[in-house]
Simulated scan of single mutants.
Amino acid sequence: MKKLLTALAAAAALTTLPALAAEKISVAATAVPHAEILEFVKPALAEDGVELDIRVFTDYVQPNVQVAEKRLDANFFQHLPYLEEFNSSRGTDLVSVASVHVEPFGAYSSKIESLDDLPEGANVVIPNDATNGGRALLLLQKAGVITLKDQGNILSTPRDIAENPKDIRIRELEAATLPRVLNQVDLALINTNYALEAGLNPTEDALVIEGAESPYVNILVARSDNSESDAIQKLAKALNSPEVKAFIEEKYEGQVLPTFE
């Protein structure tokens, strides 16, 4: 009887022990589609012992700054060319952990229905960061609007335009502001995350858009000192899961394209 009571007491003690705390990681993201994808994987990560704290940002600078300064653990908002340029110009050591999706970049207008209708001296706005600005110019070149001196340079600027038959006037603005000035210009080249937030449908509304072969794959980014941590690797695995692939394909209907099998 004494042995039974001892065993029961031990069992009761075990049931009162607190559950092991989940490991918490903070991840910066832009609202659409990045934060939405992170929200989708959040329950599965919780079951896997990782508590995901999603911080939504509206710009492309602070998510990297705050990860580099160890105020956040990771981010999910950018493509590899942007990360490489940021590391080079800022002296940071951020690394790509997983490739997730492509957001085909597009050109939009509230004034014309075809690039053939782009007027002489048209006002055109593009992102003001080096990689997305170059990306916009490459798309304009692909559409036959301009020709660049180095036709494959992803870091081209308006100063690198060799031919500009319609004498378009290009201004560089912060990427997040471009949808807000769409009705004030003839053409705006807008990152898909901001286009989606503004209610634009890239596959229907863009006058010209990148194809699925775009090299600008969006990635999960962390620091070199935490990229191999168990929690970050679990997040990377979740973002490359069949469930996320199906979620992206169903929710975004070709406006966002998964890049993993």
Rank of each mutant, 00 (worst) to 15 (best):
L148C: 03
F57M: 15
D230H: 00
E39D: 15
F57V: 14
H101N: 14
K70S: 15
T6K: 06
G121M: 12
D93N: 14
P165M: 05
D186P: 07
V102H: 05
K237L: 08
S109Y: 04
D48R: 05
A136K: 05
Q141L: 04
Y60M: 11
A10G: 02
L14K: 09
A13W: 10
E197K: 11
L200W: 01
K42R: 13
G144R: 08
T147Q: 06
A175N: 05
E249V: 05
E213F: 11
T177R: 14
K24G: 09
K245S: 08
V61H: 13
E113D: 14
D205P: 00
K142D: 07
F105E: 00
Y216K: 02
Q233A: 01
L20F: 11
P119L: 04
V181A: 05
N164D: 06
P81E: 00
A31L: 15
T131G: 01
S114G: 09
R169E: 15
Y252K: 03
I154T: 00
L155Y: 14
G134W: 06
G106V: 01
V32H: 09
S214P: 09
I170G: 12
Y194M: 08
A162I: 01
L137N: 05
L187P: 07
R169I: 15
E204V: 11
R55L: 15
T177F: 14
L220S: 01
I54W: 13
A162T: 05
S227H: 12
G211V: 11
K166Q: 08
E39K: 15
I25L: 03
V50D: 00
K166P: 05
K142I: 00
F40Q: 07
Y60S: 09
G134Y: 06
Q151E: 05
K149R: 09
E69Y: 12
Q233N: 01
T58W: 13
I25H: 03
A22D: 12
A7E: 01
V61Y: 14
E84S: 12
Y108S: 01
E210Y: 05
L45K: 02
T16G: 00
P242Y: 12
G152Y: 00
D129G: 03
E113I: 08
A136I: 07
A19F: 13
L52M: 07
L17R: 03
P179L: 06
L196P: 10
